[in-house]
Amino acid sequence: MHFGIRFYLLASLLIGAATATLYFFKGHLYSRAEPLPLEKLVLATPRIPFSSLVILAKHNNLFAKHGLEVQLEITATGKEALEMTLAGKADIAAVATLPLAYIVTRSAQPRILAVIAKSNYEHSVVARRDRGISQPADLQDKTIGFLPGTSAQFYLEALLTNANLARNKVHMKSITIQDSQSALLSGDVDAVALFAPWDKRAAQALGESGIVFAPSLHTTHWTLTSNQNFPITRPRVAEKLLLALLDALTLIGENHEASLDILAQEMEMSRADLDESWEQYTFDVQLPQALITTLERELLWIRSHGNVPSGELTPVAPLPDFLDYLSFSALQSVKPSAVRITR
């Protein structure tokens, strides 16, 4: 009799425990099945071919696939995107290396997460034939519009050096990217140093009276850059961002024509213009050794020429170790083979 009671009590306890366990796991599994809220991210970028992976990932909901709600803040230049990011108005900037070299000399603390594109032909100088310009050497004594603190300025001075023209042999005039075409058409400047797609638009506007100089003089690396805290405080977001861009890279390879149609529409370029320039770009998500070389070369140029944006002091500090301005963790986590920098 006592055995029967004990058996009944034991069976009741086991059934109760099993039921409680079932409810626990059922609730646990249910909570995991609920979609997690998307993590918000503000990414500042110009709408140019360099940012093709970003634009394509946004259009095809690849950020959302990896749990991100990405807001694109469209800027005129990468320099503007970087300024927004360091001011706390964006989390990530899509920016070339030259603006990074500038701000590093002023004690700023950016962190480069990855290089997402590079090109040897991103820049050009668009000039007016009717001002007697048919070759780069003819730029002597001419007024040339430039974008202060951008890679286009670096390219302009590389072009002048290649043509054996000292800076004091030309008249440099600071302009904005928005005013570049009108300044050229009105004759306010004789030539202007630009990047895609602005250079193509200016050349097309000039028609037969225009000429374009675009020799390969420098490799431009296009980066994703944050402030120094972002990789530490939001490491998983950084990883998800890179995963989405790796998906965009795969998408371009698998659906090339459809991808270019989307990009041409998003960047307000003709498909013919995009096709013409597309082969000039190399897209990837990586941290290459050449990135360090490029940053050092650009910083040496800044130091030797005193080329700083208007109102800022010429940097005099020793050359920094650019490894300190790279964040390896996110890329190392999602694609270790893409980290190609010797540390």
Results as ranks from 00 to 15, higher is better:
1 M>F: 04
7 F>Y: 06
9 L>S: 06
10 L>H: 03
14 L>R: 08
15 I>Y: 14
20 A>H: 02
21 T>A: 14
21 T>M: 06
23 Y>M: 13
23 Y>R: 11
32 R>N: 06
32 R>P: 01
35 P>D: 07
39 E>H: 15
39 E>L: 14
46 P>D: 10
49 P>F: 07
49 P>T: 11
50 F>W: 12
56 L>P: 00
62 L>E: 02
62 L>D: 04
68 L>E: 07
70 V>C: 10
70 V>N: 08
73 E>P: 02
76 A>C: 02
77 T>I: 07
79 K>W: 12
79 K>S: 08
80 E>P: 04
90 A>E: 08
91 D>M: 08
91 D>S: 07
95 V>P: 06
99 P>V: 02
101 A>I: 08
102 Y>S: 02
109 Q>G: 01
111 R>F: 05
112 I>H: 14
124 S>E: 13
127 A>E: 03
134 S>M: 13
138 D>T: 03
140 Q>G: 03
141 D>P: 00
146 F>G: 05
147 L>Q: 11
153 Q>R: 04
157 E>A: 05
158 A>Q: 15
160 L>H: 10
164 N>R: 11
167 R>E: 07
169 K>Y: 02
170 V>C: 04
173 K>M: 09
174 S>A: 09
176 T>C: 00
179 D>P: 02
185 L>G: 04
187 G>L: 02
188 D>N: 09
190 D>A: 12
190 D>P: 00
194 L>Y: 10
194 L>D: 10
195 F>G: 09
199 D>K: 15
204 Q>R: 14
204 Q>F: 14
206 L>W: 06
206 L>F: 05
207 G>K: 08
207 G>C: 13
208 E>G: 06
211 I>C: 03
212 V>Q: 13
217 L>F: 09
219 T>H: 08
222 W>K: 09
225 T>E: 10
228 Q>C: 02
228 Q>W: 10
231 P>C: 09
233 T>D: 15
244 A>Y: 05
244 A>S: 14
244 A>Q: 05
245 L>V: 05
245 L>G: 08
251 L>H: 01
252 I>E: 01
253 G>W: 01
258 A>W: 04
262 I>H: 01
263 L>V: 00
264 A>Y: 01
266 E>A: 06
266 E>K: 12
267 M>Y: 01
271 R>G: 03
273 D>H: 05
274 L>F: 11
280 Q>E: 14
282 T>H: 12
283 F>S: 01
288 P>G: 00
289 Q>E: 10
292 I>P: 13
293 T>P: 04
297 R>Y: 08
298 E>A: 06
300 L>R: 15
303 R>Q: 11
303 R>L: 14
304 S>E: 13
305 H>C: 04
307 N>P: 02
309 P>Q: 10
310 S>N: 07
311 G>T: 05
322 F>N: 10
323 L>N: 09
323 L>P: 00
332 Q>R: 15
335 K>I: 03
341 I>H: 06
